[in-house]
């Protein structure tokens, strides 16, 4: 069983929802990423989404765009991201890590090489924002050959007939994008999220993580009531933006945000 599946089924039997924080690898400096990942786990993260920085993050709002720019100032590459995961695995072998990014860096490395290197580094799953299942077959084959999970997106606009196909291509979980927009934009509406989740669950048993628009403990708790996973990104990345040179402050603030979400979700 994959590490993601194991975590998800454990949480389910505990009656809990997964807390899935996102940070961009290499932001603000490459040396801090592994420390931040451990800090997120200490604060209560169940799965970590690690962003692969990209020069043209089309689906991201300004907060994550700037995170990519900060990382790219240090020339953080896909290989560097994989090294960060290896570094994290030196002391943590239980928390799943899902890479999230755009396709071109993976194309450049080559699908087969990427999948085998990612598996070797201890990555558990990959979410490629600009790769819908229709175009994803070749990468999916390589992922499956390396026992990696593929996480695909479902959006508010996704039609019912596509939902099934997306769930079938996904393993580990599917990522429901709760708002029409880029990361860090609007606040989500829990009622409409719940309605869409009902449609998804009607078609598949795969766990559903919900992201975009979760900003604080209150929204995290509200989403946890209806979803299998709560994905939080921009609000964490923002703590980096406002404390660039103060690594202790970044760690402390991230810890506070994530642990307050954890408490609210489990209450």
């Amino acid at each position: 069983m994959s590490r993601i599946k194991a975590v998800m089924s454990q949480l389910k039997s505990d009656g809990k929802s997964a807390l899935i924080p996102y940070i961009t690898g290499g932001d603000p400096v490459p040396g801090l990423t592994v420390e931040l990942m451990h800090e997120l786990v200490n604060a209560g993260a169940d799965i970590i989404e690690l962003g692969i920085p990209f020069s043209d993050p089309m689906a991201d709002g300004p907060v994550i765009q700037l995170a990519c720019e900060r990382a790219l100032e240090h020339n953080v590459s896909l290989d560097d991201i994989l090294s960060m995961v290896s570094g994290f695995r030196e002391t943590n072998t239980s928390t799943p890590v899902v890479l999230m990014g755009y396709l071109n860096p993976i194309v450049k490395m080559g699908y087969g090489l990427f999948a085998s290197k990612a598996a070797g580094a201890g990555v558990d799953g990959v979410l490629v924002v600009d790769l819908p299942p229709e175009e994803g077959h070749q990468l999916l084959v390589e992922m499956r050959n390396n026992n990696l999970d593929s996480v695909y997106l479902i959006a508010p606009t996704t039609t019912d007939d596509r939902i099934k196909a997306i769930c079938d291509a996904s393993s580990g979980y599917v990522y429901y994008v709760s708002v029409k927009g880029v990361t860090g934009s609007a606040s989500l509406d829990v009622a409409s999220v719940a309605a869409k989740l009902a449609v998804i669950r009607n078609k598949s048993d795969i766990p559903v993580g919900v992201g975009f628009g979760i900003k604080d403990a209150e929204s995290a708790a509200a989403v946890a009531k209806v979803a299998d996973g709560v994905i939080v990104g921009s609000v964490l990345v923002n703590t980096i933006a406002s404390n660039i040179d103060n690594h202790a402050a970044i760690k402390a603030k991230m810890y506070n945000i994530v642990s307050s979400m954890r408490q609210a979700m489990d209450a």
Binding site: D130, P132, Y152, A155, T157, T158, T159, R162
Partner: peptide, 8 residues
């Protein structure tokens, strides 16, 4: 090659 929101 686009994010899911645009596919439909």
């Amino acid at each position: 090659f686009v994010s899911e929101t645009l596919m439909p």
